[in-house]
Simulated assay, not measured.
Amino acid sequence: MTRNRPIPHIKAEDAAYIRSLLIHEDDKLLAFNKPSGLAVQTAGGRGQSLDFLLWAFAKSNGKRPKLVHRIDSGTSGVLVVARTKPAAAHLSEQFSGRTARKTYTALISGDVPGADSGVIATALKKVPSDRGGREKMIAATDDERGAQSARTAWRILARSGNHAMVEARPETGRMHQIRAHFAIMGCPIIGDRIYGTGKMSAERLMLHAARLEIIHPDGDPLSLSAPLPDDFVAQAKRASLTV
């Protein structure tokens, strides 16, 4: 959708790669199953990112698909982009208005809750990170300067000792919300280098955007889902968790 820009050269193997990640395609939007480690967007356009690879779908006039939301580089799973300006506005409104329903699956370790489900409604605020990131989120009181309200519903899918597989539904869209909330609960996501033990527990962040429910620009409900990656399943099995 970007206008009047020269189309960068995309290697054939890179075009094939981004197309291999497609889980939905129509004339209004594209959806991908993003692997862990692929950045959605990079600062200054440096390095490979999903955003850059979208040039593989550019039209001859230079218009190309547009990002309407993001997930962390370490997070795998569903990501949707718009192919037209009206579609971008329609989808962006759903994300900003919190009507897009996001469901994540995560592997956690530590003080796993005894309850099978619940909601954590702890406000968050940004602070400088001292562990592999420019910023991170910490717990804040609701009236604290910089505090952002945040709610995450969670449900235990499987448990084994101090490990669990959980479903998380963020009701707000704060940076690192799910990651910060589980850390605050005392059971950070396995492989989280900012809020947990990083590579001491897993080679990657064990957080997966499993499902996204939106209203298609044509007006119909659309449910997009991505299966758990092989490395996620393998990590769950090592923790004796039934997938």
Rank of each mutant, 00 (worst) to 15 (best):
N61R: 06
N61D: 15
N61P: 15
G62A: 14
G62V: 15
G62N: 09
G62C: 11
K63S: 15
K63F: 11
K63G: 14
K63T: 15
R64G: 11
R64M: 09
L67G: 01
L67F: 03
L67S: 00
L67Y: 00
V68H: 01
H69K: 01
R70L: 15
R70F: 14
R70G: 11
D72G: 11
G74V: 07
G74E: 07
G74P: 10
G74Y: 09
T75C: 09
S76T: 11
S76I: 14
G77N: 04
G77Q: 10
G77K: 07
V78S: 11
L79F: 03
V81R: 12
V81K: 10
A82R: 01
R83P: 06
R83C: 13
R83M: 13
R83V: 08
T84F: 03
K85V: 12
P86A: 12
P86V: 15
P86Y: 07
A87R: 09
A87Q: 05
A88F: 07
H90W: 08
L91S: 00
L91H: 01
L91G: 02
L91K: 01
S92P: 00
S92R: 02
S96L: 03
S96V: 01
S96C: 02
G97S: 12
G97D: 05
G97K: 08
R98E: 15
T99W: 05
T99C: 04
T99G: 09
A100T: 08
A100E: 06
A100R: 09
R101C: 05
K102V: 02
K102A: 03
K102R: 12
K102Y: 01
K102Q: 14
